[in-house]
């Protein structure tokens, strides 16, 4: 029971309190680039959650069971990026074969994910915080869900911003960044949930 409540705490911590986008600035590119509409944002969020969960777990296994026992820590980054790139490739091939409709809807997002810093960032933070296997699994899934939540909220806000009277110079990225700043202030309200 204790492990379960601990895992729930890890999940809430990474999904809301230490949200990848709003407090760690990971995945800012898709956050600003693909959040123009809610459905696109949701597609991107799902794809990222999928890849983040798999690669967070696999990199944990490779790092803790292969690289550290043989003392090849310095290969960590190269190994991580290779795992992520091949995971994205695998997921792409699997989806194309077995779920063509899902593959169609993900479209261009899948290959883009390799250079999404949210994925590599999550793997690195999991390593930094010294998570165990279950924590890594739950943590990376929570990170992906947190990303989806935030990018969808941003999509919703930006759909409404289309009709707002924004100063000309702030159109596009400027107003999106300011909106993100205010959203971060709102998310700070969650920080009381842990400890």
């Amino acid at each position: 029971m204790e492990t379960v409540s601990h895992l729930i705490l890890v999940f809430i911590s990474i999904a809301l309190v230490n949200n990848l986008v709003l407090t760690k600035f990971l995945g800012i590119c898709p956050y600003l680039g693909v959040s123009r509409r809610v459905d696109m944002a949701f597609g991107m969020g799902c794809a990222v959650t999928f890849v983040i969960t798999i690669s967070g777990t696999v990199t944990w296994v490779i790092n803790n069971l292969v690289l550290q026992p043989i003392g090849m820590d310095y290969l960590k980054y190269i190994a991580f990026i290779m795992v992520i790139a091949s995971m994205v490739q695998l997921v792409e091939m699997y989806l194309r074969k077995f779920f063509p409709s899902l593959y169609e809807s993900f479209g261009i997002f899948l290959p883009l994910i390799t250079t999404n810093c949210a994925i590599l960032g999550t793997c690195l933070f999991i390593d930094l915080w010294g998570y165990n296997f279950l924590e890594a699994l739950v943590g990376s899934f929570g990170g992906g869900l947190g990303f989806t939540l935030v990018i969808c909220m941003m999509g919703g806000i930006r759909e409404n911003l289309e009709w707002a009277d924004i100063p000309k110079a702030l159109k596009g990225a400027g107003i999106t960044l300011i909106t993100a700043g205010i959203m971060t202030l709102a998310f700070m309200g969650f920080s009381g949930m842990i400890k």
Binding site: G174, T184, M188
Partner: peptide, 24 residues
Amino acid sequence: VMKLPAGAFITLGILLGLTNHFFK
């Protein structure tokens, strides 16, 4: 607030607006 993530977002947003305004 400038030390917090929110400060980073808002400062960059305003800076982008200013560069757009003056160097368009």
